[in-house]
Computed example of a mutant assay.
Amino acid sequence: MTDILPGPLWDFALELYQQPDIEVQCLQLQDEYGVRIPILLFLCWLDISGKRVEPSTLANVLKETAEWYEQVVVPLRGARRWIKSQAPLDESQSQCRGQIKAAELAAERWEIQQLAELSKGWPVERAAPLLPRVQNYLAAREVPPSVLQRTLVLLQGALAPA
Rank of each mutant, 00 (worst) to 15 (best):
A140R: 14
Y33M: 11
R150Q: 15
E64D: 12
K84R: 13
K101A: 12
K63N: 13
P6M: 04
L16R: 00
A139R: 11
L9C: 02
R80C: 04
K101N: 13
Q25W: 09
R80P: 02
S85E: 10
Y33V: 12
Y69N: 06
K101I: 11
G78H: 12
L46A: 00
R77Q: 08
Q99F: 12
V72R: 05
C44D: 09
E23Q: 12
G78T: 10
R36G: 08
D21V: 08
N60H: 11
Q113I: 07
V24T: 13
Y69I: 02
E64V: 08
L148M: 05
M1W: 06
Q95T: 14
L43Y: 04
V61Y: 14
I112E: 07
E104Y: 00
E125S: 14
L148H: 03
R150G: 10
L41R: 00
P38I: 05
G50S: 01
P132N: 05
V134A: 00
E111C: 03
V35Y: 01
G98M: 08
L9Y: 04
F42S: 01
L62E: 12
I37D: 04
K84S: 08
P123E: 12
V124M: 13
C96Q: 12
A79G: 08
V72F: 02
P123T: 13
E104T: 00
Y137N: 06
Q95V: 12
Q18H: 06
R77W: 01
L43G: 01
L40C: 05
Q149S: 14
S49H: 04
E91M: 08
A160W: 10
W68G: 05
Y17L: 01
R97V: 03
L43T: 03
E54S: 11
